[in-house]
């Protein structure tokens, strides 16, 4: 069978589908001071996966505010800098007006994913961290 680390080179999704891959990619991103991008990507997926029930409604409001505050509000943050202004205002409006929707972070997640696919992921595959691991 193909060793996991070779699969990681196939696509970003293959990498993010493996615990060890995520860990190594995170170590690399931390070194580049952009681990927040990965955390944000998973936070968006986790938020979308929250089931619709009464207990979760309060949780969703809290979480949407937390994600907004931690990653989007600060314009100098690594995540915020990669997200389009229109996407940021859309999320701000959702949070402010309590229009909490499972898909409210989807566009922002896509923008961060594109950034990783075009930039940090190819760099990771060429990095010492990955090459030493293989």
């Amino acid at each position: 069978p193909t060793p996991p680390y070779l699969k990681w080179a196939e696509s970003l999704h293959s990498l993010l589908d493996d615990q060890d891959g995520i860990q190594l990619f995170r170590t690399f991103l931390k070194q580049e001071e952009c681990a927040d991008m990965l955390d944000f990507w998973f936070a968006c997926s986790g938020f979308r996966k929250l089931e619709a029930n009464e207990i979760n409604e309060e949780k969703k409001v809290k979480l949407s505010k937390l994600i907004y505050k931690k990653y989007i509000l600060d314009n100098n943050g690594i995540v915020s800098r990669q997200i389009k202004p229109a996407t940021k205002s859309f999320i701000r409006d959702c949070v402010m007006k309590l229009h909490i929707d499972p898909a409210m972070f989807d566009q922002a997640q896509t923008e961060i994913q594109t950034m990783m696919e075009e930039n940090t992921y190819p760099l990771f595959l060429k990095s010492d961290i990955y090459l030493e691991y293989t």
Partner: peptide, 20 residues
């Protein structure tokens, strides 16, 4: 603040693949 961090961390972890 701690519980806020926990909530966010829990959300992040919930989206990660489980150990194979």
């Amino acid at each position: 603040i701690d519980s806020e961090d926990d909530l966010l961390q829990e959300c992040i972890s919930s989206a990660m693949p489980k150990k194979k």
